[in-house]
Design a protein around this nucleic acid. Sequence first.
RNA 1: GGGCCUGUAGCUCAGUUGGUUAGAGCAUGCGCUUGAUAAGCGCAGGGUCACUGGUUCGAGCCCAGUCAGGCCCA
Length: 901
Amino acid sequence: MKAGLTTREPEMLARWEHAGLYRQIQDARRDAPLFVLHDGPPFANGDVHMGTALNKVLKDFIVKSRTMLGFRAPFVPGWDCHGLPIEFKVVKESRGLSPVEIRQRSEEYARKFIAIQRRQFRRLGVFGDWEHPYLTLDPSYEAEIIRTFGRLVEKGLVYRGKKPVLWSTGAQTALAEAEVEYAQRTDPAIYVKFPLVSGTGALEGAALVIWTTTPWTLPANVAIAVDARAEYVVGDFGGTTLVVARALLEAFAAETGLALTGEIAVLKGEDLQGLQAQHPFLPRTARVITADFVTMETGTGQVHIAPGHGKDDYIAGQQNGLPTLSPVDDYGKLTEDCGMPQWTGKYVFAVNKEIVEFLRENGSLLAAQDYTHDYPHCWRSKTPVVFRAVEQFFIRVDDLRAGALEAVDTAVWIPHWGRNRIAGTVESRPDWCISRQRTWGVPLPVFYDVSGAPILDPAVVEKVAVLVAAHGTNLWFAKDDAWWASELGLPPGTSRRNDTLDVWIDSGVSHEAVLRKRPELAFPADVYLEATDQHRGWFQSSLMTSVAMNGCAPYRTVITHGFVVDKDGQKISKSAEYKKPTHAEHFVDQYGADILRLWVSSVNYTDEVPFGEEVFKQVAERYRGFRNVLRILLANLSGFSGGDLSGATGIDRWVLSRLQEVIAKCRAAYEAYDFRAVFETLNQFCAVDLSAIYVDITKDRMYCDAADSPRRRATQTVMQACFDAVTRLLAPILVFTADEAWEFAGRAGSVHLETFPEPDAAWRDEALEKQVEEWLKLRGVVYQQAIEPARQAKTIAKPLEARITLQVPADQIARLEEAKNELEEFFIVSEVHFVPGPEVAASLAKSPHAGCARCWRFLPSVGQIAAQADLCDRCAEAVTAIAECADGDMGTPSPHQPIAD
RNA sequence: GGGCCUGUAGCUCAGUUGGUUAGAGCAUGCGCUUGAUAAGCGCAGGGUCACUGGUUCGAGCCCAGUCAGGCCCA
């Protein structure tokens, strides 16, 4: 059967595609109320991983179940195509490519993986408009990205500022983290005095001391950071009054030879906050600020802050309103802004030495050593990297924050704590830097006039959008400044740069580019569903752009799922040491897509989601349970052409009643996106109510009653209802198996065109359900106390050989006697007698009667009919009836044809 | 280090507003059946509810802390 799935599923897939099943479903729901699940685009890179599969299958559960709940639920899959990981791979493969070439190859790369992932998603049984996905590299999509930027400009939400980036002075380009490699190099480590110019008492005449390994950043110094809670000593160090963190006094003495000779005062870092200290060579002061990244590992506990030359420095600068200075050019040479003419034009790593000498001469230098450390280098030019502030464009998040927080509360967050998570990130996020110095992306549509000032004009941006919609963004890279200037009616001399937009803008505007553009969709979406990392990612970028443009959230409900973890609860590492399979294809090839889907339905997706071989083996067992139940129902229904419930017994009505509950529970669970509850409910119903109880008990009548006996027909009617409902309810999960069963049952069309069954209150019978619960308790006693011991003792082999004596409280006997025949069937024994007693107890005797050759029950009627001496009265009658209307030998029941194996 | 979250049998999960000996399915063991048979049925074993304190007549459920794990920041 396992082997069956992996070959049968692709066959069914081919049939679906040939028949255009997705189209059929959409057509069938043409006038139904709309339900939009908007696909968050996966990155077009790599194979479909278990996490991606989990995400897509959950989405498919929603789309299919809403469809079966009566909605029109289109699914337009998408891919995120731009971005560094692709560009990086392309550039790594072959160097020296022009931007146009990089973009060509990046697109090829993205399209290759879109094709691969699309095949893998389809293989999972995910329905959608796979022929027309949305791609962020489509010219029409790119144009929407550019238009959105224009709208943001129009609303005054975009500004230009400086921010430090990793910069390769060898390649004159910004680098991403991934493009940096670490190598050892030796730099001067220096201790520098900053005399205090404010401060009274003990601090009068004292100097702060910083430690740095990048002397060339001193011209950009604007502050000194201390740890607010740490203790600092103001003391005499061989004639000069210095401030040093207490924790570093010893190390300071060892490194500089300056030992504390007299303690003047002790202060907390926070007491130093706000003081001004004289810059060692520039006519300005550095302000003392506090920062939580100050450590007591090296230095003095006082950190030189140059916001233009470090990430921490920049953040601290933003928080304290400090200017971002960065007097370094593209080649790593100091510019005249450094304020020291003798250093201007010199390479920063060369000028270090001169700076140190200068400090030594002017008395600011307390000590200098060579310091060897791991330092980032450009992976391409191998030159040491600098942090350098460059012009960037930002979105004013402060102007959006209040609106975004309000919008958060208009959406439903599943699980509910998702609300806190996104609110937290929205509250704390700084302005959004939307420019990147990359090639594989949508160009930042900004021009510069001859003086170098940016032209931020929505009308110009719109013109760019129109050109891009027609020709794609390659145009930006293929044409020169003069072409663009003339095309857009800008003055000659207008130039443009090679910045691209942050890829979070790409996917973050999908509500504009997809929800509003596709005729079959609508804004806002009913549901967004992604992993929890997207609270900071797509959920937030989409929220910000939508609040900016629409003043509301782009979604009504946001569902998040956890990450997949292996069965030990460890995260699935992408590193080389992690050897276990993590690709969906591995599990699909081994077990089948339906089993992968059943796995998704069986876990609590709001937590971390465990998987692994053991988990899959277990799920595969459960799959067999479902499959076998469908099979036996189909087998029992073979030749059945409709009937009624006139011959129904208690157990039939009980199953029918239970079925109504199952239907109601499953529908409610699907509505609440609680697929695990669907799984549990159907599993319980199939494994226990149907397999262990109903089907087992009714075997006797299915095999031995006359084919058209009212009792048998009633049972088939009930089984028909069970099969029909279970197959439909299972369809969103076991997409292939359910449709296969539907086909075997002779139904026209796909089960995926159907709707879910609706519970019929008329069939609910809670009194009966209670009664059967009591019977089940009695059955437990019968098996525990009578049948099981007798089997172990080899008194009997099968329960039908047993005559049970059941002791029950006297007041219950009359009621039980009434149901005596049903209880014999229910216990699957030949005879039951009731005797009064203080408590429920069961005992057993081997039946004194002969066994019927046909139904295997031991009954007094066996042998009473001379013509059929080995049969009981019921079987004799059934055989006679068969003989009258048929010619074949039907004395024993024919095994039903195995169906759907 | 900070924010959000998770931790119940070997596995996946239930455990209603705190209230009797904590449940299910699967897996395991033993047995039965051989008319669901690369199936089916029965019985059994298995949990100091992560740990430690606290509130309460009573806590898997409430509170605090610890440990372990996840995501996002730093």
